[in-house]
Amino acid sequence: MNGTAGSMPQTEGKMTRRTIPLSLIVGGVIVGLHLLAGLLTLFWTPYDPTAMVGGRLAGPSLAHWAGTDRLGRDLFTQILIGARIAIEVGSGAVAIGAAIGVTLGILAAFATRTLDDVFAAAFDILIAFPTLLVAMLIVAASQTASLFTAVLAIGIAGSAIIARLTRILAKRVLSMDYIVAARVAGSSWPSIVVVHVLPNIWPTLIVNLALQFGLAAMAESSLSYLGLGAPPPNASWGRLLQEAQGTVYTAPFGAIAPGIALVTLVIGVNLLADGLRAFADPTRRGRR
């Protein structure tokens, strides 16, 4: 903390330059490919996903990159469609979860002591229930297994975790001097939330949201696996995995291919989030 008004720390020029983190690039490319594949299926697929186009349970070949399923349908086509569903579910559920979770978390952080304790206890209790169980209950209660109910259920089930994290992060920010300084300068609470709280919790929150995206995509797979997810003909990766289960020894690729697709998407989203965090936080910028 030395220096007079005239002297600047030498690191300044270097720190301000926006170096793009490697994880942002790699994650962006992986997620971008999944996104492209998903978008592509809106206009074109290699084969009709419901048509029998080859032999049953064929292995990978030039004509069928990921082989065929037990009805002779092209697996690669279904995996491409699955990418679209996974992204729809992931981003939909995260959007719903974040909308509910961040709102409740911020409210709790601003609430009076007693109310805040109630919020905190409620979050903890909700979190104690496995996300998947909550999602299953919601789907069961709605009595319709559709892609939308799956997204809604996963989003609501995940919102408690986001709410708890938001509450903790927001409370930490609210205890900072610059919040007092902002209040001293006449800022109202809503403007403090927008100007200071959200930007300061965002770098940590985004990583958690990415985690939630991965969990949501997997939760949808699990729901589909249990027959509670998107109903056929929606070829979600979970349903592909479920269908491949019976033949996993004779035709392992039927399970491996959607598995790889799911894992790469989850890794990609996490890398992307980590890169975004480094990018959003000026004090970390330039470090790897």
């Binding site: 610059y178 007092v180 902002a182 006449g186 100007v195 200071h196 930007p199 300061n200």
Partner: peptide, 18 residues
């Protein structure tokens, strides 16, 4: 603001880091 404004002891934490 108009009536009174305050300067704090620790200038680092009195500014939003982001």
């Amino acid at each position: 603001g108009p009536a009174a404004a305050t300067i704090f002891q620790e200038p680092l934490t009195a500014l939003d880091p982001l």
